[in-house]
Amino acid sequence: MLPLSELKRGSKGRVVSIAAGHGATRRLMEMGLIPGETVEVLSNYFGPVVVRVRGVTFALGRGLASRVLVEVIE
């Protein structure tokens, strides 16, 4: 298990848990980052991490991404 911020560009993971504040957790889940969902990392360098979940592309700040735990699939 890794924080989402550690995943390399092009890799995929399955969401395990989110340990952010209530508001941020809710927002992430509404965007589709719910436990069990597959997440693909489209871009991850030093700034925000860009991911795709349930067909939606969005950018999330590094700090936020580091609070999303994922299981690496590929």
């Binding site: 941020a24 592309t57 969005f58």
Partner: peptide, 10 residues
């Protein structure tokens, strides 16, 4: 400000 969380629409 709260951390970035923004959709990148097509």
């Amino acid at each position: 400000p709260t951390e970035l969380l923004m959709e990148l629409p097509p």
